[in-house]
Structure formats: structure tokens, C-alpha cells
């Protein structure tokens, strides 16, 4: 089958247990779709200003980075992923020095991957002192700035990926959501998947300004369903199966629940860099919350 949406994958990894779950998905996708997998490891930021010394995120030790060291790290990564690296896999390994988010984006800029694949926020690279320098997490920065879909595997539960047949697409009817839908339907079509379009109605008083009556909630659900139909159904009909649902509650919880209910293999959502109230840019809102909680890989789409 000519599935070419994941031809080039950039897999950013700490090559430690923290990235194991993401690795499982990365290698599985790469093998299933004959992708070129770039295994990319960022060692850390040079401490001491302009010096050559970095605190290695793997060993937590201060190391002096030179060609020999980079060759050694590359070898270590190969050994770590030995069981995946057989002849059927097309892969390359790159190692860089710097802030993980920035170096991943820099790598993406030259490599132009079809997909960036990241481990979750529990990875120990975030436990370093840089976390405190008001910088924001790797995941958040990459998801915001990447020019391609970003797939995140956070919980181990999201890593038992045995192929794609059910995709859930969460929409908030924004322009970026439309782009995410384009992507979702392309994948669903190419891989003959079912696609479930879902909207979560935010009924938290913080959002609505008041407690909604049940009539109001149900009214809004009907409206949202109409919106989904109008916006997406004509194209959903091209698929072998689809469904459309609206649930009310706290949006990120509802999406996670819905995906679990649907046994989704993949969740696709738009990442909103702008719509988030500026006071709370810490976790870009919904997408990050969904990523943290989801029981399947999540793809965040930004542009």
C-alpha cells in the first residue's frame, strides 16, 4: 500500500527508560510504514557558558563533548535500541548539544520530517535544572513551533500500538482544527481506518460564566452536532466507517474518556498557540492535558 504520510520521522529520544514507551511506538510505526527513522538525541546544554562541557542527560555526568564522545554516544544509542535495529528498518542516528526543544526544532528545520515523535513529560531530561529557568517544557515548545504533526507518547498505556484502525479527531471548530481534520482524514483514508469526530462541550462554570441548565447543555450539544455534520460529514462519507459525537464536561477529560471508549489507536487534535489566555501559557491548555492523560498516542497539529 502506498502510504507515504510518514516517510520521514524524527524521533527525539533520551535513549533511557524514560523514552522506552515512545521508542516502542516509533520503531513500530517506522517498520509498519517503511519510514526513514531519524533517532535524535540532545545531550544537554553546555554548562559554564562557552565551554565544551555539558551535563549529559543520560548519565547526569559532566562530560566534555568532542568527536570521540559523540561517536561513543551514538554507539550507546545503537546498543540501547539494538533489538529494534534490524535490516528491515531504515534509520539514522544524530546527536546534538543544546536545549532539547530548540535542537529538535533545528533538526526538523533541516530534515523536514513528516512527523516528529516525542516521549512524554515524565522523561528525566525535564528534571534538570533548566526546567526552572522559566523555559517551559520541551513538548510544549516543539508542539507550538513545529511545522509538521507532532506525535507524543506520554503514558506507557499509550505505547502498545499495534497498528491503526480507529482514529479519534477532537475538534473545537477553529481554523487549526480544520487543518488537523485534513490530516486525520488523509491518514484514515490511506490506512482504511474508522474516524470518530468528537467535540467536547466545556460546561465548567469557569468557561461558561455560570452553571448551565440541562436544557441549555442539550441545546448546545445539538448545535455542536449540527456544526460537526455541516463541517465534516461530506468528507467522512469517503471512509469505511465514521461517527460523530459531542459530550459535555471538562474538555480534556471527555476527550480522553471518549478515546478510551472508542478504543482509539490515535488521537488527533489541533494545537492552539494563540487562543490560550496569555496568563496561562504553561500548558497550552487542552492538548497538553490530553497528551498527559491519553491511553493512546496523540498527534498535535499546529500549522
Amino acid at each position: 500500500m502506498g502510504f507515504d504520510m510518514f516517510k520521514k520521522i524524527l524521533f527525539a529520544t533520551s535513549a533511557t527508560a524514560a523514552s522506552d514507551h515512545a521508542a516502542r511506538v516509533a520503531f513500530n510505526i517506522a517498520k509498519s510504514y517503511q519510514s526513514n527513522l531519524n533517532i535524535f538525541h540532545v545531550m544537554g546544554v553546555p554548562t559554564r557558558g562557552y565551554s565544551q562541557v555539558v551535563v549529559d542527560v543520560k548519565t547526569k555526568e559532566e562530560v566534555s563533548v568532542d568527536e570521540d564522545y559523540i561517536a561513543w554516544v551514538t554507539e550507546e544509542i545503537k546498543t540501547y535500541y539494538e533489538k529494534y535495529l534490524d535490516e528491515s528498518l531504515k534509520y539514522s542516528i544524530d546527536v546534538a548539544v543544546g536545549l532539547p526543544a530548540r535542537e529538535i526544532l533545528r533538526q526538523a528545520k533541516t530534515m523536514k520530517p513528516d512527523l516528529i515523535l516525542l516521549g512524554g513529560t515524565t522523561g528525566d531530561e525535564d528534571e534538570t535544572v533548566y526546567k526552572k529557568s522559566l523555559a517551559g517544557s520541551t513538548l510544549q515548545k516543539v508542539a507550538k513551533a513545529a511545522n509538521c504533526p507532532v506525535l507524543v507518547v506520554n503514558r506507557p498505556a499509550a505505547s502498545f500500538w499495534g497498528g491503526l484502525s480507529n482514529i479519534v479527531f477532537g475538534t473545537d471548530f477553529s481554523k487549526t482544527s480544520d487543518k488537523a481534520f485534513d490530516f486525520a482524514i488523509k491518514v484514515a483514508k490511506a490506512l482504511d481506518c474508522e474516524l470518530s469526530v468528537f467535540h467536547a462541550l466545556d460546561i465548567t462554570p469557569l468557561h461558561t460564566g455560570k452553571m448551565l441548565s440541562q436544557d441549555e447543555i442539550e441545546q448546545q450539544i445539538r448545535e455542536s452536532l449540527r456544526k460537526i455534520r455541516a463541517r465534516y460529514e461530506s468528507r467522512l462519507k469517503e471512509l469505511k466507517g465514521y461517527s460523530m459525537d459531542v459530550w459535555e464536561g471538562i474538555p480534556f477529560i471527555e476527550i480522553v474518556k471518549y478515546a478510551r471508549d472508542k478504543h482509539a489507536d490515535l488521537l488527533i487534535m489541533a494545537h492552539h498557540s494563540r487562543k490560550v489566555p496569555s496568563g496561562d501559557i504553561r500548558l497550552g491548555g487542552n492538548v497538553e492535558q490530553v497528551i498527559v492523560r491519553a491511553g493512546c498516542p496523540v498527534i498535535s497539529i499546529n500549522k
Binding site: A17, D20, H21, R155, P156, A157, F160, R260, G295
Partner: peptide, 10 residues
């Protein structure tokens, strides 16, 4: 034999 298998089937 997979790590984290206890999360695979809820």
C-alpha cells in the same frame, strides 16, 4: 516481556 505491560490492557 515488554516494559510497562501492566498498562497495556486496563
Amino acid at each position: 516481556g515488554l516494559s510497562g505491560h501492566q498498562y497495556a490492557v486496563v
